[in-house]
């Protein structure tokens, strides 16, 4: 193989890689906002619809992002808060929290009424639990109903841990995951409440 051939090869590969990566970065820039909106619409909206009841705005457009902590590498982690309003009065605030289940992380959307600090409801957004067992955290509405309409000061741990929540029979790990997510969510809410400027 002559030197000229090698140079030609390297040159062609470099140009191809650069053009491909550049093109993709451009497509990513154009679609980024739309993708974010779609993800919220199809993954978060069904959960929001379940737990927000009395409002007349679009909580997805009325969303705000707040820095709520740092990750292992010291970068900021932010949480999205969806604001439900009636008239111009803020009636509830919804955000997502996670806990670990049997098959991976469980995402839980929590709605809180800032007026009187009451949990209005919770709904599972993402999960990969065992079908028919762990998935009851979604399929069995009486489980998530246990969290609804309780003050933030209530104990949202499982009854085995001294709390008020009855675990689903045969799916203790998944139930714990949801309960942890709610507890963590309330903690987060109380930490950022002063910043929310309500």
């Amino acid at each position: 193989m002559s030197l000229r051939e090698i140079i030609q090869m390297v040159l062609v590969l470099t140009i191809v890689a650069a053009v491909c990566a550049g093109g993709l970065a451009a497509v990513k820039m154009v679609t980024m906002e739309q993708i974010e909106y779609q993800q919220i619409k199809f993954i978060k909206e069904p959960a929001l619809k379940k737990i927000l009841t009395d409002y007349d705005n679009d909580p997805i457009s009325d969303r705000i992002q707040l820095v709520t902590g740092k990750d292992a590498r010291g970068r900021d982690v932010s949480t999205t808060f969806f604001l439900a309003k009636k008239g111009s009065q803020l009636v509830s605030l919804a955000f997502e929290s996670t806990g670990s289940g049997y098959g991976g992380p469980i995402g839980v959307m929590i709605a809180i009424a800032p007026e009187d600090d009451v949990v209005q409801g919770i709904a599972v957004t993402t999960q990969s639990e065992t079908p028919g067992l762990g998935t009851k955290i979604i399929d069995d509405p009486s489980f998530s109903a246990q969290f609804a309409d309780k003050p933030l000061s209530a104990n949202f741990s499982l009854s085995a841990a001294g709390g008020q929540i009855q675990a689903i029979t045969g799916a203790t790990v998944s139930s714990t995951g949801v309960s942890n997510a709610v507890n963590r969510g309330i903690e987060l809410y109380q930490a950022v409440k002063p910043e929310l400027d309500l």
């Binding site: 890689a17 993709l24 497509v27 990513k28 679609t31 993708i35 993800q39 199809f42």
Partner: peptide, 19 residues
């Protein structure tokens, strides 16, 4: 590389408009 670029474009566009 060319094929993979096409595939990623499809991935992104599908996520944006046909989620």
């Amino acid at each position: 590389s060319i094929i993979a670029t096409g595939v990623v474009i499809v991935e992104l566009v599908m996520q944006a408009y046909f989620y």
